[in-house]
C-alpha cells in the first residue's frame, strides 16, 4: 500500500497516478484534469490523439477503486477550456455523469474552465474548506491557512548517472501542497521554477509516488531569477 505523509496535521497519501488520497475524509483529490485538451488543439488544426479524456478518466476510476474514496475534489482546470464539456465524447460523458451522481463530487473552478463542468453534475465552488484544509485552484501566496491547490503542474527533474529523469510531483512546503496535473496531456513546470517558489513561500520538498514508495527530493533553491 502507498506511503502517507503528514501535512498540517492531516495524513495524506500521494498516489503514483498524481491523485491525493485523504483517508480521514474518504476523499480523492485531483488537480488539472484538463479534459478535452486534445480536441481543443484539434479545433486549431493540431490533431492530438482524441483519447485524452478517456485515458484521464480511466486513471481516475482506477484510483477510486484503489482507495475506495466516496468523495472527489477536483482542484480546477478540470476542462482545458470552457467549451470542453460540450466536446466530451459520449462514453466518457456518460461515465463522468454516473460518477458525479453516485459520489460526493466537487468541482473547484479554474482559470481555464471556470464553472463549465457544472453541466455534468456535482457541486461547483471557487474554494472550499474541508477539515483544517483549504482547497483552491491556485495557491494564494502568504495566506496563512494550510492549503491544497493545483494550477502549476509541478514536476521534478532528477539527474543521476548522466540521465535526466522528469516526473510529476507533489510540491510541499509548511502550509502549501501543490498537486501535480492529472490529465493525460498536461505537461509541467519544474518545481524549482520561481513561479512555484513564490507560491510555496518557503523551503519545500518534492514528493514522487513511485510504485509503492514515496520518494522525496529537496527543491533546489539555486535557480533563482537573475536580478
Amino acid at each position: 500500500m502507498s506511503v502517507s505523509l503528514s501535512f498540517a496535521g492531516e495524513t495524506l497519501v500521494p498516489l503514483a497516478c498524481g491523485g491525493l488520497h485523504w483517508p480521514a475524509q474518504q476523499a480523492l483529490l485531483v488537480a488539472d484534469l484538463h479534459f478535452e485538451k486534445g480536441s481543443a488543439f484539434a479545433r486549431r488544426g493540431r490533431f492530438l490523439p482524441p483519447h485524452d479524456s478517456a485515458d484521464t478518466l480511466a486513471c481516475l476510476i482506477d484510483a477510486l477503486e484503489l482507495t475506495g474514496a466516496t468523495r472527489v475534489f477536483c482542484l480546477g482546470d478540470s476542462f482545458h477550456d470552457a467549451g470542453g464539456p460540450a466536446r466530451l465524447p459520449d462514453r466518457p460523458r456518460a461515465a463522468l455523469r454516473l460518477l458525479t451522481q453516485s459520489l460526493d463530487w466537487l468541482w473547484i473552478t479554474g482559470n481555464h474552465d471556470d464553472d463549465a463542468a457544472a453541466v455534468l453534475g456535482g457541486r461547483v465552488m471557487v474554494e472550499a474548506r474541508i477539515g483544517a484544509l483549504t482547497l483552491r485552484h491556485e495557491a494564494v501566496p502568504g495566506a496563512p491557512e494550510p492549503e491544497l491547490s493545483g494550477h502549476f503542474h509541478p514536476k521534478v527533474a532528477v539527474h543521476i548517472r548522466g540521465r535526466r529523469i522528469v516526473r510529476r510531483c507533489f510540491a510541499v512546503s509548511a502550509t502549501k501542497m501543490i498537486l501535480p496535473a492529472y490529465g493525460a496531456f498536461t505537461g509541467g513546470l519544474l518545481v524549482d521554477d520561481p513561479a512555484i517558489g513564490a507560491a510555496l513561500g518557503g523551503p519545500a520538498l518534492a514528493f514522487v509516488a513511485e510504485g509503492d514508495r514515496l520518494l522525496r527530493f529537496p527543491v533546489p533553491m539555486g535557480r533563482i531569477a537573475a536580478e
Binding site: 529523469i165 513511485e210 520518494l215
Partner: peptide, 14 residues
C-alpha cells in the same frame, strides 16, 4: 537501467 530504479537510487543516495 530502468528510470524507476535510478530514481529510487537517487532518493537512497540523498
Amino acid at each position: 537501467a530502468a528510470d524507476s530504479a535510478l530514481l529510487i537510487e537517487a532518493d537512497a543516495l540523498a
